[in-house]
Design a protein around this nucleic acid. Structure first.
Length: 277
DNA sequence: AAGCCTACCTGTTGGC
DNA sequence: TGCCAACAGGTAGGCT
């Protein structure tokens, strides 16, 4: 489900609904996610006030005075607001009751494929950036240090394709399968080009394309291809603006030739064979 | 070290 | 209609 834009859209929606609110109740319905949910999570959170709702890469970070909750949504994870007494749905693994001005609401974490995570980082364990899941992450695409020079430098002597290089998140985080194809299209770069043999000028275009595509996706609420929705059920609209992703056989937005699908590293890539070289 | 591959899960879709 | 393979927004970890 979520790449960086979807997580950012969720963060922006959630921040005003969570910040300065208290966790009235917390239940672990099923601890089985990518890593087991700490069964003591409710004892850490109940009665605490949310101080911050931030994002690092595809992690949503909910800050309290005693630690931070890291949420990751894997491929299919979602948050959903419901009445506190509403019936649980299949694959609801975790929930929080949050006090709101007009009575409390329950926030469910639902993740059918269980590739997501809910991890507690106690304040006593030191700075959040040292959490094992965060400490090795590359820079954010909206970091001032992210540009073509950065991609160029990190890609020297790399023999993987540029698509795999982007997806590996070793140089920049947050660009998943949809936005990698979209960014390469907008930069006019063939996805099978080797990362290490692309010029500085082309990486300048790619860095710009990544920022443009991600910004636009955030603006329109992300991509709702199958099941992504923000916590209030709002769907994204970016899937209507993709120029190549999911468009195999359809005419290229620029030249009209059919968009091609290929598989790289077991993931689908979409591109235009004429406009991308 | 880099790159390749598998594994983790469930649900949906399309072809026969 | 039913069955089955292919595929889906991510990423850690193990093996060259």
């Amino acid at each position: 489900m979520p790449e960086l834009p979807e997580v950012e859209v969720v963060r922006r929606a959630l921040a005003p609904q969570l910040i300065r609110r208290h966790v009235i109740d917390c239940e672990v319905h099923s601890p089985r996610l990518r890593w087991p949910i700490d069964p003591l999570l409710p004892t850490y959170l109940v009665g605490r006030q949310v101080l911050a709702v931030e994002r690092r890469s595809k992690y949503l970070l909910v800050g309290f005075d005693n630690g931070t909750l890291l949420l990751h949504f894997g491929m299919a994870g979602k948050l959903r607001w419901a009445a506190p007494c509403a019936a649980r749905e299949p694959h609801d693994h975790l929930s929080f009751v949050i006090d709101q001005p007009e009575g409390s609401l329950r926030l469910y974490l639902n993740d059918p494929r269980r590739f997501g995570a809910a991890l507690w980082h106690p304040l006593a364990h030191g700075p959040l950036e040292q959490h094992p899941r965060l400490s090795g992450l590359a820079i954010e695409p909206f970091d001032a240090r992210f540009d073509g020079a950065h991609l160029f430098r990190d890609s020297r002597r790399r023999s993987v394709s540029v698509k795999s290089f982007l997806l590996s998140a070793q140089s920049v985080v947050g660009v998943g399968n949809i936005y990698a194809s979209e960014s390469l299209f907008r930069a006019g770069i063939h996805p099978e080009r080797l990362a290490g043999s692309i010029s500085r000028a082309r990486y300048d275009r790619l860095a710009l394309a990544i920022r443009t595509v991600l910004s636009r996706a955030i603006e329109v609420g992300g991509s709702s291809l199958r099941d992504y929705a923000a916590p209030g059920g709002e769907l994204g609209a970016f899937q209507a603006e993709t120029r190549v992703y999911g468009r195999e056989g359809q005419p290229c937005w620029i030249c009209g030739r059919p968009i091609v699908r290929l598989v790289q590293g077991q993931r689908s890539t979409f591109y235009c064979p004429k406009c991308q070289s």
